[in-house]
Design a binder for these strands. Structure first.
Lengths: 153, 153
DNA sequence: CGATATAGACAAGCTGCTTGTCCATCGATA
DNA sequence: TATCGATGGACAAGCAGCTTGTCTATATCG
C-alpha cells in the first residue's frame, strides 16, 4: 500500500479545508442575514428557500430534497408560513398537493442571503485575486458536486 | 452599484459549490466510516475526534471548539466513553479537570475516518488530475479558513 | 371501476441541545 | 496564608427538531 503517501495527505487537507470553509461560510452568511433583519431564521432554512424559490415545490418534494421526512418538512414549511416567508397555493393539477411559493418577504430574504454570500466570499476573492479565484471556482465546478440537496447542518 | 455583476455570480457559485461539496464529503466519509464497522457514530463526532486526537483537550475546552455548551460536550464525551472511543484521565496540573484521550478503538476509528476521507476525495482528484488538484488544494489553503472548530452539521 | 401509491395532517416519542444551579478547585491578590 | 472571583465539571429540567406510525383524500394504473 504505502505508495500514495503525499496524495493521501493532500486529500486529507482537501476535505479538511472544504469542511472548514463550509463552516465559515455558513456562519458568515447566517450572521449577515440575521444582521439584515431576518433573525427568525436558522442556517438550515437556506436550503428550503433555495428549493422553494426554484419553483414547483410541494412539501413532500421539499422533504425529498432536504433528506428529511415529510413531517419534518411540513413542520418547517409551517414555520416559514407563520413567519411570512412562504405561502401555500393550490396545486394546478393535483388537488391533494399544495404548491409552495415565496412571499415578497421571502424574496427579500433570498436577496439578502445572496448579498450575504457575496460579502462573505469577498475576502477570499480578494485574497486570491480575480483570476485565481475564477480558476478556483471553475475547478470546483468541474468536480460537479451532486447536491446542495442535503443540508447536513 | 451594478458594477460587480459577474463577480457576484461567481461568488454565489463559489459558496454553493463549497457547501455542496462539503455535504457530499460529509456523507461520503460517514458512509465509509459506518461501513468500516463504526456504525455507532454520527458525522458530528468527527470534530470531537479531531480535537481529542490532537491532545490536551478537556471537556470544557472541547465545548469551546465545538461551539456548544459544556453540558452538550460532556454528554458527547460520556457517549464516546461509553462506546469505548475515549477515556478520561486525570489532568496532570489541574485537579478539577479531566484530560481526554482516545482509546485504541478511538485511534482505529480515526484511521478509518482518514482512509474514508481519502477515498471520498479520490474521484475528485482523478477528475482534475494530480497537478490541478494540488493547485486547488494550495489555493484553498491560501484562503486560510480559520476553523474546522465549528461543526455546523 | 377497483387496487395501489402518494400528498398531507395528526399524534406520540426520542434525542441532542439549551439554560440554570451547584460544588470543588484554581489563580490572583491582599 | 487567607480570601475571593473565575473555571472545570456534574445534576436537573425543559425545549426544539426530527423520527415512526397511522389516517384521509386524491391520483394513477390495471
Amino acid at each position: 500500500m504505502s505508495e500514495p503517501a503525499v496524495p493521501a495527505q493532500e486529500s486529507l487537507a482537501f476535505s479538511a479545508l472544504v469542511l472548514a470553509l463550509a463552516g465559515e461560510l455558513v456562519q458568515g452568511i447566517h450572521d449577515r442575514v440575521v444582521a439584515a433583519g431576518f433573525a427568525d431564521l436558522r442556517p438550515a432554512h437556506g436550503f428550503a428557500f433555495a428549493r422553494i424559490s426554484h419553483g414547483g415545490a410541494t412539501t413532500a418534494e421539499l422533504a425529498g430534497h432536504l433528506g428529511v421526512t415529510k413531517q419534518a418538512a411540513a413542520q418547517l414549511v409551517d414555520e416559514l408560513v407563520r413567519k411570512g416567508y412562504v405561502e401555500r397555493t393550490p396545486h394546478p393539477t393535483d388537488a391533494r398537493a399544495r404548491l409552495l411559493r415565496l412571499t415578497e418577504h421571502g424574496w427579500a430574504c433570498t436577496r439578502a442571503a445572496d448579498a450575504a454570500a457575496v460579502e462573505a466570499v469577498a475576502p477570499f476573492r480578494e485574497l486570491l485575486g480575480p483570476e485565481r479565484f475564477a480558476a478556483l471556482v471553475r475547478d470546483l465546478a468541474a468536480l460537479g458536486p451532486k447536491g446542495p440537496i442535503r443540508p447536513t447542518w
